[in-house]
Design a protein around this nucleic acid. Structure first.
Lengths: 206, 206
DNA sequence: TAGATTGTTAATCGATTAACAATC
DNA sequence: TAGATTGTTAATCGATTAACAATC
């Protein structure tokens, strides 16, 4: 299908998806570019421009129909199916992630959870069985999982990342503070609220 | 002090700060723009350019001294002191946040944790006492806290955000899936791994 | 009709990148 | 000296914004 999106456009489209999903849950039928702008801090003109690249999805004087815009964006981002991911770590953070609706809402399914702690293995978190860490490689391969989420302490993150990559994972979400060394064809997304906070504070203080 | 940084520069500088902090922990003394680039996916030329706006911090042929670069960036971002934040929610996510080194490493101190659940109130998480939710307003005011972290379920996030804003908080980190309505002078940062994942998958699939 | 909001243009600004002399 | 890496320039590309006609 035509051109590949730029990183910026793809990032913004997925944020619109989140706003639309939540607005729908709140019972709304339609939404204006200005409302999406209020929630995303993306300029309203930019939003209309991003969308109009792909078609005329809105109605002048009215706004965008939420259901149809959701479908259009999902089509553009090719995220209509279900995606399986693996979660490493069944500690407090891992449990919080496994029981959060955040992934499920977007069609992302936590297909497996792994932990090295025998106390945690065999338990169930919100219906998801915790497997032995040693089974990671086989399960990731069998289920063709390409996304791994690391919810482990910083000092074990690199080892777990190595194992995930080895098993075939190509996108890693790192919730530890550690820097990860991975092959060039593996994407690492590190979530660090402290980093965001420092830069938010800068704008608050100046 | 001179000009205000652009949003982009401030965001990148705080990411460099994170890399430097971790590299230091790993026992490194100096680092090149290329190494910072590998960890942040920011172009090495861009990094050198960002830094050289503020002075000549590097040594040609050698790289940057980690300690002095840390100090310089902290000076630029004015994040040298300690910052107090409030955490709402002492469930699994709240406990994970309270016990993570991520904030402490950057001089950010969780000054108070609140929960409505009487089971959790009075307990201690990694040395931090869990206070009654009703005390939020007084504590936030007394300690002059301007940053609040929401680790509560989506359906109670808006109420907690209202209470935080009411007590004087101006920066909110939202870990729920909910969209938050806040006054224009309050910054909301929503962390949603699913959104990031959808856009990461796009680039993997194309 | 009147009000609202899209789709689109045009102008500006910041980000990105390659290239390379300077210099450690 | 030779190799490495910074600091800086110049050229390009994408993001941002205001403005407004089109139209629901």
């Amino acid at each position: 299908m035509s051109e590949r999106l730029t990183v910026g456009v793809a990032a913004r489209l997925s944020r619109y998806l989140q706003v639309l999903t939540q607005a729908k849950k709140m019972g709304k039928d339609r939404i204006s570019s200005q409302e999406i702008s209020d929630y995303t801090n993306v300029n309203a003109t930019q939003i209309r421009r991003d969308l109009s690249t792909f078609g005329k999805f809105g109605k002048r004087g009215v706004g965008y129909n939420i259901d149809s815009l959701l479908a259009e964006i999902r089509k553009i981002l090719r995220t209509q199916g279900q995606h399986n991911i693996a979660l490493v770590g069944a500690g407090r953070l891992g449990q919080a992630i496994a029981s959060s609706p955040i992934f499920a809402e977007h069609g992302i399914n936590i297909a497996a959870v792994f932990d090295t702690d025998p106390e945690k293995v065999g338990r169930t978190i919100d219906g998801i069985h915790v497997s032995e860490y040693d089974r990671l490689r086989d399960v990731v391969r069998d289920k063709n999982i390409i996304v791994g989420v690391l919810a482990v302490p910083g000092d074990t993150a690199q080892g777990a990342a190595d194992d995930l990559v080895d098993a075939g994972v190509r996108i890693i979400f790192n919730y530890s503070e550690a820097l990860l060394d991975v092959p060039a064809d593996v994407q690492v997304h590190t979530s660090n609220p402290a980093v965001e906070l420092l830069h938010a504070l800068y704008f608050h203080l100046t």
